[in-house]
């Protein structure tokens, strides 16, 4: 088998919580406590689990938004966890993140054009405004948005449209790995379907690898090649999507699957 694009070994991210100081003890919250997985080129791995189990923290650690306590993450053969911020910065182009809340993740004071031009200029992918503009128009089209949205501000768009803009901001850099943290859970069901289709199509067409973080098992089944189930900061089960859904092994995975509302099943009474 070829070398995976991302290979995470024994990742730990601990937070000290509570105020330290005289006679007060800080306690340690082991949000991620020894997680290992790998993602190959063009593969979609889903990370599922209940809220607070540490899924987002995995994604945020891999993008240096949190500091890893221990472990390694080999990206394209290089450990990204012990890079300094300056060393990691050029790699940000390759490792991009889509955030959950489309209302909070777009700066209300920047127009769509300013927002999408920023990463282009930072990574030297456009020399001037007209070059940037060309690429922005193309990317907006890719996510199903009109070119004339460029001059508008985030508050003029619906949740679904904002999430498309968030996806455009990521795809405009043609990354190699996208970490999507609950990208549709803040949207309405019908809009979720639109955005899920979009993500799936973009992933297929560009062949980008993806870490898809979600607690919506329907979406996970729809989009992923493999699934990793997380519980209390640890992975309890990893497998091919079909295998996880049809023959779950771990008790927590079984409970998770049994909790999904299904048609024709009645609760209680």
């Amino acid at each position: 088998m070829t070398r995976p694009l991302l290979d995470v070994r024994e990742l730990k991210t601990h937070f000290s919580i509570g105020r330290g100081g005289f006679m007060r003890r800080k306690s340690l919250l082991r949000a991620v406590d020894g997680v290992s997985f790998s993602i190959h080129d063009g593969e979609v791995l889903s990370l599922v689990g209940e809220s607070g189990c540490g899924k987002s923290t995995v994604g945020r650690t891999l993008t240096h938004l949190e500091t890893a306590t221990a472990g390694t993450a080999m990206f394209d053969g290089r450990d990204i966890l012990n890079l300094s911020p300056a060393e990691f910065r050029p790699l940000r182009r390759d490792i991009q993140m889509v955030f959950q809340d489309p209302f909070a993740s777009l700066n209300p004071r920047l127009s769509i054009e300013q927002m999408l031009a920023e990463p282009l200029f930072i990574h030297g992918l456009a020399r001037d405004r007209s070059e940037a503009r060309e690429r922005i128009v193309a990317t907006l089209e890719l996510v199903g948005m009109d070119a004339n949205s460029m001059s508008r501000y985030p508050h003029e768009f619906s949740g679904g449209q904002r999430q498309r803009i968030g996806i455009a901001r990521v795809m405009i850099l043609t990354p190699r790995l996208v970490i999507a943290d609950e990208p549709v859970s803040a949207l309405d069901v019908s809009i979720q379907a639109q955005v899920l289709n979009l993500i799936k199509r973009l992933q297929r067409d560009s062949g980008v690898s993806m870490l898809f973080i979600s607690h919506d098992l329907g979406a996970v089944r729809h989009i992923s090649d493999r699934v990793a189930v997380m519980y209390g900061g640890k992975l309890v089960e990893t497998g091919k999507t079909r295998q996880i859904f049809e023959t779950p092994r771990h008790a927590y995975t079984q409970r998770l699957l049994a909790s999904i509302p299904r048609f024709g099943k009645r609760i209680g009474r």
């Binding site: 945020r60 993008t63 240096h64 938004l65 910065r89 050029p90 940000r92 182009r93 991009q96 993140m97 955030f99 959950q100 809340d101 909070a104 993740s105 777009l106 700066n107 209300p108 004071r109 920047l110 920023e118 990463p119 930072i122 990574h123 968030g166 901001r169 850099l173």
Partner: peptide
Amino acid sequence: RDVFVDAAICSGAGHASVLFRHILPN
């Protein structure tokens, strides 16, 4: 702590850009 600041950092924005382009206008 706003997510849009995280998003800017993920785009590769440096300190000056985060401070004066993303935080200050708000």
